[in-house]
Design a protein around this nucleic acid. Structure first.
Lengths: 101, 101
DNA sequence: CTGACTATGTATAAACT
DNA sequence: TAGTTTATACATAGTCA
Protein backbone atom coordinates (compact mmCIF):
# COMPACT_ATOMS: atom_id res chain seq x y z
CA UNK A 1 0.00 0.00 0.00
CA UNK A 2 1.59 3.20 -0.97
CA UNK A 3 3.70 4.54 -3.76
CA UNK A 4 5.76 1.43 -4.03
CA UNK A 5 5.52 -2.23 -3.24
CA UNK A 6 7.56 -3.44 -0.32
CA UNK A 7 8.94 -6.76 0.80
CA UNK A 8 8.05 -7.92 4.28
CA UNK A 9 11.46 -7.95 5.88
CA UNK A 10 13.03 -5.94 8.67
CA UNK A 11 13.51 -2.32 7.63
CA UNK A 12 17.16 -1.55 8.11
CA UNK A 13 17.00 2.23 8.11
CA UNK A 14 16.19 3.21 11.65
CA UNK A 15 14.29 6.33 10.72
CA UNK A 16 11.98 4.77 8.16
CA UNK A 17 11.49 1.78 10.45
CA UNK A 18 10.27 4.17 13.12
CA UNK A 19 7.98 5.97 10.66
CA UNK A 20 6.54 2.72 9.37
CA UNK A 21 6.07 1.47 12.91
CA UNK A 22 4.09 4.52 13.84
CA UNK A 23 1.81 4.27 10.81
CA UNK A 24 1.24 0.54 10.91
CA UNK A 25 0.78 0.39 14.66
CA UNK A 26 -1.96 2.95 14.30
CA UNK A 27 -3.55 0.92 11.51
CA UNK A 28 -3.34 -2.33 13.44
CA UNK A 29 -4.94 -0.87 16.54
CA UNK A 30 -7.73 0.62 14.43
CA UNK A 31 -8.39 -2.72 12.75
CA UNK A 32 -8.41 -4.45 16.10
CA UNK A 33 -10.98 -2.01 17.38
CA UNK A 34 -13.15 -2.43 14.29
CA UNK A 35 -13.03 -6.21 14.53
CA UNK A 36 -14.09 -6.09 18.14
CA UNK A 37 -17.06 -3.86 17.39
CA UNK A 38 -18.23 -5.34 14.09
CA UNK A 39 -17.98 -8.94 15.20
CA UNK A 40 -18.66 -8.60 18.90
CA UNK A 41 -15.33 -10.17 19.75
CA UNK A 42 -13.01 -9.68 22.70
CA UNK A 43 -9.67 -8.47 21.42
CA UNK A 44 -6.35 -7.70 23.03
CA UNK A 45 -3.27 -6.37 21.25
CA UNK A 46 0.14 -5.73 22.80
CA UNK A 47 2.96 -4.16 20.84
CA UNK A 48 6.50 -3.44 21.95
CA UNK A 49 8.46 -1.21 19.63
CA UNK A 50 12.08 -2.03 18.98
CA UNK A 51 12.92 0.64 21.54
CA UNK A 52 10.82 -1.14 24.13
CA UNK A 53 7.84 1.16 24.26
CA UNK A 54 4.49 -0.50 24.92
CA UNK A 55 1.35 0.16 22.92
CA UNK A 56 -1.87 -1.68 23.54
CA UNK A 57 -5.52 -2.08 22.72
CA UNK A 58 -8.29 -3.99 24.36
CA UNK A 59 -12.00 -3.48 23.96
CA UNK A 60 -12.59 -4.88 27.44
CA UNK A 61 -9.54 -4.85 29.70
CA UNK A 62 -6.19 -6.42 29.08
CA UNK A 63 -6.50 -8.27 32.37
CA UNK A 64 -9.77 -9.78 31.24
CA UNK A 65 -8.28 -10.84 27.92
CA UNK A 66 -5.19 -12.36 29.51
CA UNK A 67 -7.25 -14.21 32.10
CA UNK A 68 -9.51 -15.57 29.41
CA UNK A 69 -6.49 -16.52 27.33
CA UNK A 70 -5.06 -18.56 30.19
CA UNK A 71 -8.39 -20.24 30.77
CA UNK A 72 -8.72 -21.08 27.10
CA UNK A 73 -5.24 -22.52 27.07
CA UNK A 74 -5.91 -24.47 30.22
CA UNK A 75 -9.08 -25.87 28.76
CA UNK A 76 -7.15 -26.74 25.65
CA UNK A 77 -4.72 -28.75 27.72
CA UNK A 78 -7.44 -30.63 29.54
CA UNK A 79 -9.35 -31.32 26.38
CA UNK A 80 -6.69 -32.23 23.88
CA UNK A 81 -3.11 -31.87 25.06
CA UNK A 82 -1.75 -32.96 21.70
CA UNK A 83 -3.95 -31.39 19.07
CA UNK A 84 -3.88 -27.87 17.71
CA UNK A 85 -7.53 -27.32 18.52
CA UNK A 86 -8.11 -23.96 20.09
CA UNK A 87 -11.33 -23.72 21.99
CA UNK A 88 -12.31 -21.69 24.98
CA UNK A 89 -15.24 -22.12 27.26
CA UNK A 90 -18.24 -20.26 25.90
CA UNK A 91 -18.91 -17.15 28.01
CA UNK A 92 -20.19 -19.00 31.06
CA UNK A 93 -22.83 -21.62 30.40
CA UNK A 94 -23.68 -23.05 27.01
CA UNK A 95 -21.20 -25.86 27.27
CA UNK A 96 -23.22 -27.61 24.62
CA UNK A 97 -22.24 -25.00 22.08
CA UNK A 98 -18.55 -25.75 22.11
CA UNK A 99 -17.23 -26.24 18.64
CA UNK A 100 -14.57 -28.82 18.13
CA UNK A 101 -13.05 -28.91 14.70
CA UNK B 1 -13.07 -1.73 1.85
CA UNK B 2 -15.20 -3.56 -0.53
CA UNK B 3 -18.22 -2.97 -2.64
CA UNK B 4 -19.87 -0.73 -0.15
CA UNK B 5 -18.89 1.45 2.75
CA UNK B 6 -19.86 0.16 6.14
CA UNK B 7 -20.46 1.69 9.50
CA UNK B 8 -18.43 0.35 12.39
CA UNK B 9 -21.15 -1.11 14.53
CA UNK B 10 -22.01 -4.62 15.61
CA UNK B 11 -23.21 -6.70 12.65
CA UNK B 12 -26.60 -8.06 13.57
CA UNK B 13 -26.88 -10.86 11.05
CA UNK B 14 -25.13 -13.80 12.59
CA UNK B 15 -23.98 -15.30 9.31
CA UNK B 16 -22.41 -12.18 7.89
CA UNK B 17 -20.91 -11.38 11.26
CA UNK B 18 -19.21 -14.75 11.15
CA UNK B 19 -18.01 -14.22 7.58
CA UNK B 20 -16.69 -10.75 8.37
CA UNK B 21 -15.00 -12.08 11.48
CA UNK B 22 -13.20 -14.70 9.50
CA UNK B 23 -11.99 -12.25 6.87
CA UNK B 24 -10.96 -9.47 9.21
CA UNK B 25 -9.36 -11.76 11.75
CA UNK B 26 -7.18 -13.10 9.00
CA UNK B 27 -6.31 -9.57 7.90
CA UNK B 28 -5.53 -8.45 11.43
CA UNK B 29 -3.24 -11.38 12.12
CA UNK B 30 -1.44 -10.77 8.85
CA UNK B 31 -0.93 -7.10 9.67
CA UNK B 32 0.35 -8.00 13.12
CA UNK B 33 2.86 -10.36 11.61
CA UNK B 34 4.01 -7.77 9.09
CA UNK B 35 4.42 -5.13 11.77
CA UNK B 36 6.52 -7.46 13.85
CA UNK B 37 8.82 -8.29 10.95
CA UNK B 38 9.09 -4.88 9.29
CA UNK B 39 9.65 -2.96 12.49
CA UNK B 40 11.37 -5.55 14.62
CA UNK B 41 8.67 -5.30 17.25
CA UNK B 42 7.34 -7.86 19.70
CA UNK B 43 3.65 -8.32 19.06
CA UNK B 44 0.90 -10.33 20.69
CA UNK B 45 -2.70 -10.53 19.54
CA UNK B 46 -5.51 -12.41 21.23
CA UNK B 47 -8.97 -12.65 19.72
CA UNK B 48 -12.04 -14.36 21.11
CA UNK B 49 -14.87 -14.75 18.65
CA UNK B 50 -18.41 -14.17 19.85
CA UNK B 51 -18.72 -17.95 20.12
CA UNK B 52 -15.72 -18.01 22.44
CA UNK B 53 -13.12 -19.48 20.13
CA UNK B 54 -9.58 -18.24 20.63
CA UNK B 55 -7.31 -17.06 17.85
CA UNK B 56 -3.87 -15.70 18.49
CA UNK B 57 -0.62 -14.44 17.06
CA UNK B 58 2.72 -13.76 18.59
CA UNK B 59 6.03 -13.44 16.83
CA UNK B 60 7.81 -14.59 20.00
CA UNK B 61 5.63 -16.43 22.47
CA UNK B 62 2.46 -15.26 24.12
CA UNK B 63 3.99 -15.97 27.50
CA UNK B 64 6.91 -13.71 26.70
CA UNK B 65 4.60 -10.94 25.54
CA UNK B 66 2.36 -11.19 28.58
CA UNK B 67 5.31 -11.25 30.97
CA UNK B 68 6.79 -8.22 29.28
CA UNK B 69 3.43 -6.50 29.37
CA UNK B 70 3.19 -6.96 33.11
CA UNK B 71 6.70 -5.70 33.63
CA UNK B 72 6.00 -2.66 31.50
CA UNK B 73 2.85 -1.95 33.47
CA UNK B 74 4.66 -2.38 36.73
CA UNK B 75 7.38 0.00 35.63
CA UNK B 76 4.69 2.43 34.58
CA UNK B 77 3.28 2.34 38.09
CA UNK B 78 6.66 2.93 39.69
CA UNK B 79 7.54 5.72 37.30
CA UNK B 80 4.37 7.70 36.93
CA UNK B 81 1.30 6.28 38.59
CA UNK B 82 -0.84 9.12 37.30
CA UNK B 83 0.35 9.89 33.79
CA UNK B 84 -0.55 8.14 30.57
CA UNK B 85 3.06 7.62 29.60
CA UNK B 86 3.63 4.10 28.45
CA UNK B 87 7.23 3.07 28.60
CA UNK B 88 8.67 -0.30 29.37
CA UNK B 89 12.07 -1.09 30.75
CA UNK B 90 14.60 -1.84 28.09
CA UNK B 91 14.47 -5.53 27.21
CA UNK B 92 17.48 -6.42 29.38
CA UNK B 93 16.39 -4.66 32.52
CA UNK B 94 15.05 -7.83 34.11
CA UNK B 95 13.85 -6.35 37.37
CA UNK B 96 12.76 -9.63 38.76
CA UNK B 97 10.88 -12.54 37.41
CA UNK B 98 7.53 -11.62 38.79
CA UNK B 99 5.01 -14.34 38.38
CA UNK B 100 1.57 -13.06 37.80
CA UNK B 101 0.12 -16.38 36.81
C1' DC C 1 -21.25 -23.12 5.15
C1' DT C 2 -16.74 -22.58 2.10
C1' DG C 3 -14.48 -20.50 -1.49
C1' DA C 4 -13.65 -17.36 -5.47
C1' DC C 5 -14.33 -12.84 -7.67
C1' DT C 6 -13.86 -7.96 -8.19
C1' DA C 7 -15.39 -3.22 -7.54
C1' DT C 8 -14.50 -0.17 -4.10
C1' DG C 9 -12.87 1.62 0.27
C1' DT C 10 -8.70 1.93 3.12
C1' DA C 11 -4.06 1.83 4.55
C1' DT C 12 0.21 3.37 3.62
C1' DA C 13 5.13 4.12 0.94
C1' DA C 14 7.16 7.97 -0.85
C1' DA C 15 7.44 12.50 -1.45
C1' DC C 16 7.00 16.80 0.31
C1' DT C 17 6.60 20.57 4.03
C1' DT D 1 12.27 14.97 12.76
C1' DA D 2 6.92 15.24 12.97
C1' DG D 3 2.85 16.35 10.10
C1' DT D 4 0.48 16.46 5.37
C1' DT D 5 -0.33 14.91 0.70
C1' DT D 6 -0.97 11.69 -2.99
C1' DA D 7 -0.43 7.71 -5.87
C1' DT D 8 -0.59 3.02 -5.35
C1' DA D 9 -0.99 -1.42 -3.18
C1' DC D 10 -3.83 -4.00 -0.36
C1' DA D 11 -8.03 -5.51 2.25
C1' DT D 12 -12.51 -6.60 1.98
C1' DA D 13 -18.16 -6.02 1.31
C1' DG D 14 -21.18 -7.67 -1.56
C1' DT D 15 -22.06 -11.27 -4.68
C1' DC D 16 -22.20 -15.52 -6.89
C1' DA D 17 -20.77 -20.47 -7.53
Amino acid sequence: MGRGKIVIRRIDNSTSRQVTFSKRRSGLLKKAKELAILCDAEVGVMIFSSTGKLHEFSNTSMKSVIDRYHKAKEEQQLTSPISEVRVSLAPLANLSNLNFY
